[in-house]
Design a protein around this nucleic acid. Structure first.
Lengths: 115, 115
DNA sequence: CCAACAGTCAAGCGACTGCTTAAGTGTTTG
DNA sequence: CAAACACTTAAGCAGTCGCTTGACTGTTGG
């Protein structure tokens, strides 16, 4: 099994900041330039750039510069990877609970003995 | 709309560390004591405790002490919350792409007009 | 009782984060 | 060409993170 550990580190780290989640939120409704992304945010442009670098470094966002304008768009594969990591653990947990329920339903009053 | 922003900060921050994801991984297969969790990890017991505190602070893990042993178990609601945050953004993005495809398929060579 | 056990508290340390300001670079526009 | 524009780079700084060691608390088992 491949270990995406470092990649997961970066994605979850990227999503662990409200400003960066705001940027992702904005980008799911379509591409935007750096200053369009910065406009509603209460911080300097370099700060926004740094957030964008974090988002690009983990592959959540891709950007392209044309003339003097950099256009950013979201890249959903990495989003899906993070989602699936969580989903697998959650379903794994739920299946364990189901098996436990089955055992308890099948043998409601047995205790220490084996067979 | 409720703002779970701080809560999401904490969960994603918690998941942004490989050791903590290992602990979550271990706990989805059933409850464990602190030293059971620490045993495969290449670090001191206090370090493991600190990771557990992070996991408890964001609600991913709950623990209970009986005698001298603290038993930890996973708490899947917060896991689901994080999963859903991602899922909503991803599907939102996919729906936008679908609408875009529809428009392009319907009017393959039109430009400015409405209706 | 006392020793081993399971966990906890506290201080400290180097690395990393999220910002800032100041000074750039390259690209239009008048 | 010169000024406005849209970023970009670099330095610096306060605060947080992940970890360590050392000392300590409470709980069993012989």
């Amino acid at each position: 099994m491949l270990n995406h550990s470092e990649s997961l580190d970066r994605v979850f780290q990227a999503l662990a900041d409200g400003t960066r989640r705001d940027i992702v939120e904005r980008l799911v409704s379509g591409p935007a330039s750096v200053s369009q992304l910065a406009q509603p945010l209460a911080m300097s442009l370099p700060a926004v750039m740094q957030h964008l670098q974090v988002l690009e470094a983990c592959g959540l966002v891709r950007s392209e510069k044309v003339g003097r304008v950099r256009t950013c768009r979201i890249e959903p594969q990495v989003l899906r990877m993070a989602e699936e990591w969580i989903a697998r653990r959650r379903t794994s947990w739920e299946q364990r609970l189901d098996r436990l329920d089955d055992l308890l339903a099948e043998k409601p009053s047995e205790q220490g003995s084996t067979s």
